[in-house]
Amino acid sequence: MLSSAAKRVAPMPASSEPAAIEMVGMNKWYGSFHVLKDINLTVRRGERLVICGPSGSGKSTMIRCINRLEEHQHGQIVVDGVELTNDLKKIDVIRRDIGMVFQHFNLFPHLTILENLMLSPIWVRSMRRWQAEQTAMHYLERVKIPDQAHKYPGQLSGGQQQRVAIARALCMSPKIMLFDEPTSALDPEMVKEVLDTMVALAEDGMTMLCVTHEMGFARQIADRIVFMDQGEIVEMNNPSEFFSNPSHERSKLFLGQILY
């Protein structure tokens, strides 16, 4: 808690930390539609970034480019020193080290919770079964639902499913975690349990990029807030500055609409 509070004061991350993600002049088009315009963004190791902006601003698309769920057409994305190209092997290497949590959880409905968690440690990291099970149980305890291990995703509440999805990503011991609107599909009473899990993760020093509309959460954990609109990064600032004194007209408008 203390360390995160200390970090929050600094407007930019400590420059001694090496870059976890580096985007330089990154552009993406859907056909003739220019979704991402000249994105330049460096994320340091251990940094917590919250990305916000109106819908259609390209924030989800941007973080999906980082693990190549979307392909960028121009510019550079370097993850942990490896540049993303069409090289499938490199893509696999990068994906192994990036965990992702989706809006709609995307758990595998035909597998139990435990099997969901063990799948990629066994098949991607070649972990032994017992070892994968141990890891899975460890993370299920961390997200506080070890008792659900043998149920199927459909038997769990939305909040529980999203916590399982977080645990599933953590089982691969990722260096970076991407969150794509993790609480947007949840009933209001379940938002907190998921955010609490994410706060705990942030306090452990995980590098996090989080697309969210949860501004309280952003204020609590973010080192920096990235505000996007119409495919551009409009403003990048520390939370206290961003919320109290947004420098851009569009940020002001957006904050006016969501903080009521």
Binding site: R68, D92, R95, I98, M100, F102, N106, W123, V124, L178
Partner: peptide, 23 residues
């Protein structure tokens, strides 16, 4: 979303098909 989740976990094509999609 099932393909995306499998891809994000680093599962290659055939394993994704065999373990996630086909069942």
């Amino acid at each position: 979303g099932q393909y995306e989740a499998a891809a994000a976990l680093g599962l290659p094509f055939w394993r994704t098909q065999y373990l996630v999609i086909l069942p």
